[in-house]
Each structure stands twice: as C-alpha cells, then as structure tokens.
Write a protein that binds this DNA or RNA. Structure first.
Lengths: 334, 334
DNA sequence: GACCCTTGTCGAAGCGCTTCGACGAAGGAA
DNA sequence: TTCCTTCGTCGAAGCGCTTCGACAAGGGTC
C-alpha cells in the first residue's frame, strides 16, 4: 500500500504538505502542488479511508435509508437511490445502504460509530416513529418526503398537494366536470404515507373549487380492471382520471380500453409518476413528473450544506411540472 | 463521544483488555468480561469505525455493485440487494452501494482506499469487462451470476440451465409435445447476459432430448400480446409455455386468456422467477424459484469465508426447485 | 522442587492521516 | 531601516483503536 509518506518522499516535501496540497486548506505554491500531484499519479496513491475518517473526523460516507414497505413502486425507489448515489459521488462521498428493517438500531449504529457523516431517508411517514430519534441523534439528515411536522428537520419533496391540484386544474381547463383519483393501495393511506394523502387533499380541494364532482379510489396492483368498472358504474359522467399509482397506470389504461373507452376522446387520463413510466405506457400519459433525479440531488446538496455548517430551510417543495403527452383532451360534450 | 479508554477506566481494566473482551482474540476471565460489558452498556460505547478500520485493517463494510441495465427487473434486483444487506448484517458488516455507472473507477476507489473489505457484484455478463480488473484487484469478491470463465473467481448462481431443463421436463412429464420459451428482451441476450443464455440452452436441450418441438422468443415488456399471438399463429400445436421474464409474465397470461385459452386446460404455463412474482399473478404460476434471498446470503457467506482466508469453490450453482401452483396440467389431447 | 505451559492482563507501539503551532523568507508600510 | 504581515512549509501531536510482547500467577509434569 502506498501512503502519504511515500508521496511526500517522492515529491521531496513533508507529509503535511501533501495533505494540504490535497485538501487546499492551506496555501501551497503552484510548483509544489504540481510536484505532489505528479508523485501521486506516479505512485497511484489513494488516501486510506479509515485513517482519513479518524484524523479528519469525516468519513465521506452518507447513509441512505431505503423503504421496503408494501405498496411502493420499487423502480421509483431505485430511481431515487441511484440519484442519491450519483449526487453523493459528485461531492466525493460514498453511500451506505440501510434497509428499513434495520430501523432505529441501524441509525444509531452508523451515527455512533461515525461510519457516516450524514443521512438521507426516503419514504417518510406523516408521523414517522424514527423522527424523534433523528432529531436527537446529532447526525445531519435530510428526508425525502414531508412528515406532519418538519420542526428541526430538513425535508425535500415534490409538492404533491400542488401536483394533485395541477392535474385537476388541467382537466378543468379542458372542460371536464367529473373526475376521479385512482390512488395507492389502502395500506399506504392507512399507515400515513405523506405524499399519498397530500395528493388526495390537492385533488379534492381543486375539484371542489372548480365545482367538479370527484371520487377517490385506492387501488391494489391487481385490481385495475375492477376499479375501472367500479368507476364507470358509480360515476357514469366521468371523463377525467388522475392516476397516482405507477404499477396500476398501464393496466388501468388497458382496462378502460377493454371497456370500450378511447383515450383521450372518451376519457382523459393523467398521472403523477416518473417520466419514464408515463412515456413507456402503451398510450403515453400526460403527467406531473415525479423528479426522482432532481429530488435525490437536492437532498444530497442540502445535506452537504448542512455538513459545511450552513443553515438550510426546513422544507423544500418542488413545484409540479406537467408534461402533455396526448392522453388528455377537451371534453366532448355528449 | 465515549471511547475505549472511558470503558476501560470504568471497568477498571486497560484498553487492550476491553478490546480483547470485545473481539475474543485472547482469553479474558468471565468476571472481567462481564464488568467490561456492563461498562459498555452503561456508557453506550460504540467503537469508532474509522479507528477500527485503521488499526484492525478491516472496515467491516462490503461493496455491493448493483446493475442498472435496461431489461432487468428492478424488484428482483432489489430482492438481491436486500438479502445481501441482511446477510451482511448477520456478519456484522455494512453495505456500500456502488452503481454500475461508477464502473471500474468505483471498484478501484473502494479497494485502494480500503473503504471495503470485499465486494459482491450482481448481474455479471458472460464476458464481463470488469472481470480482469476484479482478478487483478486484491479485493475478495463474489459474483452473483456465472461468467464464461470462472477461473480465479468466486461465483454463485441459480443453475439456470437446469432450471430451463426442469421446466421442459415438467411439461414433458405432463405429456406436452410442443413448447415455447418466452425470454428477456433481445438486448439482454445481445449483451451476453449469462443466465438468460443458459436458460435458452437448458430449454432447448431438454426439448430436443424429449423430441418436443420448441421455439424461443425474446419479449419486450410491452409486447406480451403480440408475442402470444405470434406463438399461437406459428406454433398451433403449442400447449406448454415457459416464461423467463418477470414483467411479462402477467400480461402474457392475460393475453392468452384474452385469446380464449384457459390455463392450464388449454395451455400450461410455467416460469422462472422469484416466488413472489409467481404467487401474486392473477393465476398463480407453477415456477422454478429464483431464490434471491438464498443467493444473496450465499454470496455473503462465501465472501466472509474468503475474508477469513478459507478456500471456496469457484462456482456454486443452486439446484432448481419447482413449485406447482396450478398453472400447468396434463395435456388434454384434442 | 524445578521446570514449563497456560491463562489473564497490561503497557506501548503503531495503523495512515489531518491539523496545529512554529518559523524562515519575502514583501509592504512606516 | 525596522516592524509587521502574509505565504509556504515543516515537525510533531494526536484521532481511537488493535495487537504484540511481556509478565505475574497458577497448575501440571517429572
């Protein structure tokens, strides 16, 4: 193993100079810096992570807590995870994977052993039991998701309430008068998943404001067909549907087609989901983007800011962005 | 932060004794050990990860390289990842997430900085470009997947060839004479994904041995319907289908149903996929398990063995296990 | 009883890095 | 010229842990 003293010897300087040349924490002459860099290249030097963590009190590792609950869409979660890893690398950090099962013990462990410098937690519930611990632990953390109270926390999320509203308003502008929201499986609402509830609120509020008739229906992945039938039966005037449930989107569209409805002429469909999901549907779907990429990057950026001691806002909500893809159209009055 | 000297003082022993009590690397009297343990509990001591890594030359962290290629089934991949994390925790290790994008540079980094003790790599291609590096790096590694040559490596996988054979033989025993394999998207074969090709080999070999007529058809996620139609058109005598493509399984079954075929009376369907996928299909599917749980655990166990200096076999193939779920039946001769 | 193990513990020496204080040299202000 | 800064570098002191060698005490063995 090549160490800092080897580099120092080769460059004809002291180890501390190498360290400063690398970190930039003290001025080093251009000439010396170049010599050091050359020595590093020639020897293939890489600082030992453990030694660095010990002496520098920074591990350059972040923990990422990924959810494994039922009713979540795994590819969407992975999208977040990948964007967090990518963003972390841009800041010269690595990412440690923590599963939900590990729970509080896992958080304690990585914090107390100084294994990680900070923490990104996904899929936060409205009243998440881990929040008190998170506030107590003195480990900088950023949540992806918005709990009931953000006091003392740092959260980023899509503004799901506004996203629900945006979908309804889009349909309202197109003349629709009767809309439905097809949401996540019931369990997701039961356990208080923040974003799910917020979409419902936004959807309902916007529909009420616009004087539209509206329904909300949770939906299991396998029940797309049944839900489609139920909607048409109970809400015969229905012409607009908002889908907030990735795995159900395509089956639902298929079910409507099988029931003889054409999209968008008979029925306008819009969704809240990652662009990839909306694009790759057989019928491309007009949707509000779930910007995993951007959310993950924001979360990491905020975490880095906290690590550098800067103050950050308690909550950052991204405004919804709607992309038309032809699955919505003007209501054709029958 | 509470450190080992604090514990030592409290327990009335020296730091080295605390260390030995913790690691068990030297005999410590029962009585002393208890006193140390109590001090640890009272103070809430946790050894500093960096210090431990530096002094002990072990970071107690593994790297997990997860694939992000197109055409893979993300929930299946996550199943592996979770099982690796869980298994690693049983061995007191944490898991660092490396994405494919990081590529060779990522491997180099975690190895050279001693960030991790070992490495688990998923989704190995037949002729994976990372293999030479992996052999060169002196970082213990285990692959999930079986490349063309396992020389100098350690690999675990389901015996996909045998799995393909098992499916055909199952259908043969039930009297079927004409079978088809619906596989992954073409790109997966093109890039030489090991398991995909092996299933084809096993499937074809077994069908030939049994004197059955057989076809192999790759399939994109969206093309289930088209593939079903194509199969019936080109192979009218078809009565048995093997599906090796998780996202396509359910749509394909639906497509056959729509085309008027009853399962299993008109058509027997079997699959190679995680049990969860086979069970949660609308029609539960007789399948060969893809034992993510077990494979992940095995991979980690093998890695731990390597870390302790023991010799391990170059390749470990798990025998296929078939579970009947009612989607296959005796061929009813027309 | 002399000798040798084994058991249980301690002190000290690192592991490879960062950081602090110190200091010579050079430049500016007076 | 003198004094004060700033710049660029060095040496040494840790960071918190593991491990090595040493050693006292006790128990077998002959």
């Amino acid at each position: 193993m090549v160490k800092i003293t080897d580099v120092a010897r080769r460059a004809g300087v002291s180890p501390s100079t190498v360290s400063y040349a690398l970190s930039g924490k003290r001025p080093i002459s251009e000439e010396t810096r170049l010599r050091v860099e050359e020595a590093i290249r020639e020897l293939g030097y890489r600082p030992h992570a453990g030694a660095r963590a010990l002496a520098g009190r920074r591990s350059n590792v972040l923990a990422l807590v990924v959810p494994l609950r039922t009713g979540i869409h795994v590819p969407t979660v992975m999208g977040f995870a990948v964007s967090v890893v990518t963003a972390a690398r841009r800041h010269d950090h690595d990412v440690l994977l923590l599963t939900q099962e590990e729970g509080e013990e896992g958080l304690h462990r990585v914090a107390d052993t100084a294994l990680v410098d900070g923490l990104v937690m996904m899929d936060v519930q409205l009243d998440d039991p881990r929040l008190p611990l998170l506030r107590a632990l003195d480990l900088p953390a950023v949540l992806i998701g918005l709990p009931a109270s953000t006091a003392g926390l740092t959260c980023v999320d899509l503004d799901f309430r506004a996203a629900g509203e945006a979908c309804v308003e889009h349909l309202a502008r197109l003349g629709h008068r009767s809309v439905a929201l097809v949401g996540s499986p019931p369990e997701v609402y039961v356990r208080g998943t923040a974003y799910a509830g917020r979409v419902v609120q936004g959807f309902t509020a916007a529909a009420d404001r616009a004087g539209m008739s509206s329904t909300v229906l949770p939906c299991e992945p396998a029940d797309a067909r049944a839900v489609a039938e139920q909607l048409l039966r109970e809400q015969p005037a229905l012409t607009g549907v908002v889908v907030h449930n990735e795995p159900v989107l395509e089956p639902l569209v298929d079910a409507f087609a099988d029931l003889g409805l054409r999209i968008p002429s008979d029925l306008s469909v819009t969704a809240i989901c990652p662009d990839g999901v909306a694009e790759s549907s057989r019928v491309p779907i007009t949707s509000v983007t779930l910007p995993s990429e951007e959310l993950g990057a924001r979360a990491v950026d905020l975490l880095m800011k906290k690590l550098s001691g800067a103050a950050v806002p308690e909550s950052t909500l991204l405004a919804p962005r709607m992309t038309e893809r032809g699955s919505t159209g003007r209501r054709t009055v029958p």
